[in-house]
Computed example of a mutant assay.
Amino acid sequence: MLEAEKELTRRSDELAERRQELPWVRIDKEYRFETDEGSASLADLFRGRSQLLVYHFMFGPDYKAGCPSCSMIADGFNGFAVHLANHDVMLWAVSRAPLATLRAYKRRMGWAFPWASSIDGDFNFDFDVSITERQQRAGNVEYNYRRGGHPLAAEQFPEPVVKFATMCGTDAPSYMRERPGMSAFALEDGVVYHTYSTYARGLDSLWGAYQWLDRAPKGRNETGIWWRRRDEYGSR
Rank of each mutant, 00 (worst) to 15 (best):
N140E: 11
S235Q: 05
H150T: 13
R96F: 02
I225Q: 12
G110P: 10
R147K: 14
P68Y: 11
R134I: 13
N78C: 12
A138Q: 14
R26W: 05
L8W: 02
L206A: 04
Y31F: 15
E133A: 11
P160S: 09
L22W: 09
K29I: 11
R215N: 04
E34T: 10
D28H: 04
Y31C: 12
Y210T: 10
R11C: 06
L42N: 10
A184K: 03
R137M: 11
V141H: 06
D189P: 04
A97N: 04
K6A: 02
R220H: 10
Q135Y: 05
V129W: 01
D75P: 02
W92A: 02
Y210G: 03
I119W: 00
L42F: 05
L2I: 10
P158Y: 05
A209N: 00
S130A: 15
D189C: 01
N140M: 12
R18H: 05
A116N: 08
K218E: 15
P23N: 08
V89K: 05
R215T: 08
A85V: 03
S205M: 01
W226F: 14
S235P: 01
A184P: 03
G208P: 00
R236H: 04
L203T: 06
P160E: 11
G139H: 06
P98M: 03
C168E: 15
I27A: 14
E188V: 09
G202T: 07
H150M: 12
V162K: 14
E17Y: 01
G202M: 01
G224D: 15
